[in-house]
Design a protein around this nucleic acid. Structure first.
Lengths: 217, 217
DNA sequence: TACGAAATGGAACCCGCTTCCAGGTAGCCT
DNA sequence: AGGCTACCTGGAAGCGGGTTCCATTTCGTA
């Protein structure tokens, strides 16, 4: 009798089959977005591709933006995790007793950003997706944004272990903002990719340069 | 006979009456946007309010986004210019021989940003307009963006006269990005206004702190 | 097996940007 | 002045795509 159909079912109360359906939707977006920019991606096509009925899609996501945001969050998390492990592997490779001193914060962060940038270069539509989602006013999309933000912050904080929090926090903010805004400018053609890379390097050096030497005794 | 109606007439080739019409359109947007967020603003209403026929509007602007971008650029320029003069007035007030030393770069820039932020706080829909325009893919909108970017850069460069360009340039980039991204987060409800202010202060101090003392001999 | 909830396929709704058209109007050249 | 041309107006479609609805089928469970 009660039909609180207002908001999408919370993820936690979903049956496995439903979670699978939900995931098929986000996966379809991730697959398709490489070919088609977010604003040209149509709900009809996503539904068809994922094998989920269009009407059903709207039981899982409040709007197209919500779906896009969820897909993006998923992709972004995977990317960040992958890059994080790569960077920390590179870290430990030279860190043992090989004589090579462990890289400084600045180098480490730059390496991290470079890898993320490479991913975006290979998949420009994901960069477009970032700006699209950030511009969305759907509250559910905002939630996803917040979640990814937390994740990113955690990763960067880990990379900046040697840096005092008073510096690390604003540094993170500045870097995230520069990245987001740079991706937007790049995809819109207001910035070349090399310039984007350079900007991030410069900003990184500016905010983290003084801490490059690990643990200055 | 020839009907190259593809792009809007360039501003430079317009008669005064046409420039007036064009301005009436952007002015109408500026007046209305305070009440209605950009995505709810309708071309029909803008046309009606400005007294320009809808079809004619499209002879001046390639799309809604283009019109929004132009209006935004106009507002932003006015704001920046106003704030710039205010700040430089405050500068000279204490700079003559009043015994008060001229404020350092960091303080100056912070003052500038505070004033801009205040304007956005009073007119949240203009903040939304910023993110909307930045997310637009209309190339004409991008042009406007680039123009405003140049303007902003010029103003900030002037404020940072004491800072070596190697620092000033990335500092500017970081600040602009932090501002843009912060405005987006604020209007989306992911950030409170005080937090937004704080973030900008922190980043400013981080990137310009070392240069706070004017001309360290 | 029977029942209710959820999914399906597809059509239909809706709304706002954009375009098109049939008159007017204003400048401009001769 | 007369007329030509380019531009403007008001309004009516065109159109695309997100969103919603519904009759029917499927699925999970008691």
């Amino acid at each position: 009798m009660a039909k609180e159909e207002t908001l999408p079912q919370p993820v936690s109360t979903m049956t496995p089959a439903q979670l699978a359906r939900r995931r098929r939707l986000t996966d379809a977006v991730i697959e398709m977005i490489d070919q088609v920019p977010p604003d040209q991606l149509q709900m009809r096509d996503v539904a068809e591709r994922s094998g989920v009925a269009l009407g059903t899609a709207y039981r899982y996501f409040s709007s197209k933006d919500h779906l896009l945001a969820a897909a993006w969050a998923d992709w972004q998390r995977r990317l960040t995790d992958r890059v994080r492990t790569e960077v920390s592997r590179d870290q430990s490779r030279g860190g043992g007793n090989s004589g090579i001193p462990p890289a400084g914060v600045c180098t480490r962060v730059t390496a991290f950003l470079h890898r993320e940038l490479r991913a975006f270069q290979r998949h420009p539509n994901f960069a477009r997706l970032v700006t699209h989602v950030e511009g969305s006013s759907d509250p559910f999309a905002s939630e996803e944004l917040a979640g990814v933000g937390d994740n990113n912050r955690a990763v960067l904080t880990a990379l900046m272990e040697d840096v005092p929090p008073d510096v690390a926090r604003p540094a993170m903010i500045a870097l995230n903002a520069t990245l987001a805004s740079g991706l937007g400018a790049w995809t819109a053609g207001r910035l070349t990719f090399p310039d984007l890379v350079r900007q991030l390097e410069d900003v990184t050096r500016l905010v983290l340069g003084p801490y490059e030497n690990p643990r200055p005794a």
